[in-house]
Design a protein around this nucleic acid. Structure first.
Lengths: 213, 213
DNA sequence: CAGGAAAGATGCGTGCACGCAAGTTTGCGT
DNA sequence: ACGCAAACTTGCGTGCACGCATCTTTCCTG
């Protein structure tokens, strides 16, 4: 299908995107998020400020995207990896939990920074919307193509639930001045995610039921 | 509870907000959305441009809010009006359909304009997120307070579904130059809404079941 | 391999969002 | 009725997002 080897153009684009992500995160960590201007990020990545905005629509997006990276694709893949003998609801839940707990070392450092500034926090939460399209695709695959509409709604609901889980997880953040304490805010993230996704299970079961008939 | 009579301060604030909404929509209709600057809206409403931004975080929000107004509250009320003898899922669905089809005459004219400009279209779709909090509240009321978490997730899912319904409804919009033709883009909106909300019904039933035990 | 088309990078200009620090109005206790 | 405190408005300054026109790079086709 999409087996065409990348091509120089595309590779350069990804390299630039990567460089911007990297530069944004590094600078934000180094001097604090407020003291990084778009101009600085662009310069550090070796492109013009205008080009920066061809890749990211806001200053926050670049920083956040260094952490979230290709999480959307990985979630979709993780769902697809679960064979049809596990309930769809479980497959999705486990895939989500898996991908949100596998945050690398660097992500931890960055998350402290992100949860501090409201603007970054919001941008981070907004990334959950991005998991909808790929999720909808894999769900639709399991639902027979009669349920394409249903798949989309379920995927969007999952995205919404994940957002809520992250919100409540980040809730009681208050202090953290310069260095920041290494506290895990609310309950453990996996629990929050499972709790938030649980109410949707019946909807998944019903949808799945209808295709297995 | 909140029985304190408004008070002058609060009334003035609402008046200003109203004036801004009104001015924004009127000007946008009169000369087209692109030829309205924040400065113009502020002037028409008799406040400074800076004050405008104390009420609305973006130019689009003011225009859109003239149409969406207090839809959130009305949806919540419409759900609350349904007594406990109808399924929660149905109550919510009907309440949503009811409130989204009762668009006044003026809304129709405005909607044409909104669907034209991508920025406005996005702002309009973003308003669906606003129905979550009040919806969560009324749902929680029906679910016994053990399910506050569940209520929030369900409300967010409904918001997501409504958004999808609106998106697919607005999909094939292309023309509309000056006056605009009065075509209903896709299928009728109520159908889109019902279709989008249907997959969530099992989740509502399950939640409702658990409290009736 | 030549040459043109398509995609991307860049500079410039405009309007916008928002923090901050006054100035002004409203509300309330005495 | 007075006056203070809190809420709101406003002007200013900064950085930002993005449309448009132009120049450069990559790609494809003959």
């Amino acid at each position: 299908m999409t087996a065409t080897p990348p091509g120089l153009r595309e590779r350069k684009k990804q390299a630039t995107r990567e460089a911007l992500r990297e530069a944004a995160l590094r600078l934000a960590v180094e001097r604090g998020p407020d003291r990084v201007r778009v101009e600085d990020i662009a310069e550090a990545a070796g492109v013009s400020p205008r080009t920066y905005n061809n890749y990211f629509a806001s200053r926050e997006q670049a920083i956040v995207s260094a952490v979230t990276a290709d999480r959307e694709a990985r979630i979709a893949a993780a769902v697809a990896a679960r064979t049809a003998d596990v309930r769809l609801a479980d497959a999705v839940t486990e895939a989500v939990v898996e991908q949100y707990t596998n945050t690398g070392e660097r992500a931890h450092e960055a998350l402290l920074l992100i949860t501090t500034r409201p603007a970054l926090r919001d941008a981070f939460l907004d990334t959950t919307a991005g998991i909808e399209p790929p999720l909808a695709a894999v769900i639709a695959e399991r639902l027979d193509d009669t349920g394409a509409h249903t798949a989309r709604v379920l995927a969007a609901s999952v995205a919404a639930a994940v957002r809520i889980a992250l919100e409540t997880w980040l809730r009681p953040t208050g202090d953290a001045d310069t260095a920041g304490t290494l506290v895990v805010p609310s309950g453990p993230l996996p629990d929050q995610l499972r709790t938030a996704l649980a109410p949707l299970a019946p909807a998944f079961d019903a949808a799945e039921q209808r295709t297995q008939t």
